[in-house]
Computed example of a mutant assay.
Amino acid sequence: MTWGKRISKPVYGCIAVLSYGGGHGHVAFVVGMNARGNIILLGGNQHDQVNLSPFKAKMTYVYPRGYTPSKEPLQVLPINGRTTSYRETR
């Protein structure tokens, strides 16, 4: 949680840090959102594979120092399914 620079809202390419408590969490890249408002993340170890999955968990967003994040709104992607949980990122 000390790496990079925090931002208040997700932008394309930033890193989402999810905390599930007890020192458990997950990190992935933000690539968009779906029509339901869930953030779409590109990550590994989601359903035992690398994929795009919707998340609605509380997240912290960061990007590397020296990087200029996009100012464009997140693209709405047609990825709906159920949202991914802590258990599915293990």
Rank of each mutant, 00 (worst) to 15 (best):
G37S: 02
V30L: 07
K5W: 10
F29R: 14
Y61D: 03
K56H: 13
R6L: 09
Y20V: 00
V31A: 08
Y86E: 13
G25Y: 06
G23F: 04
L42K: 08
I7L: 02
S85Q: 11
K5T: 15
E88C: 08
E88L: 07
A35I: 08
T89C: 10
S53V: 13
S19V: 02
I7R: 04
K9Q: 13
G23K: 06
K58V: 11
N80Y: 12
I40R: 07
F55E: 10
K71F: 01
Y12Q: 14
K5G: 00
I40S: 05
D48G: 11
R90E: 15
L77D: 04
R90T: 15
R90L: 15
N51F: 06
G25Q: 06
Q49K: 15
G37V: 01
G66E: 13
P64R: 03
V11C: 09
G44F: 01
V17I: 15
Q49M: 15
L42V: 00
V11P: 07
Y63T: 06
G22R: 07
N51S: 15
A35Q: 08
P54S: 07
K9W: 01
K9F: 06
R82W: 03
M1G: 15
A28C: 07
V27W: 08
T68K: 09
V62G: 08
G37K: 04
R87N: 14
T83H: 05
T60P: 05
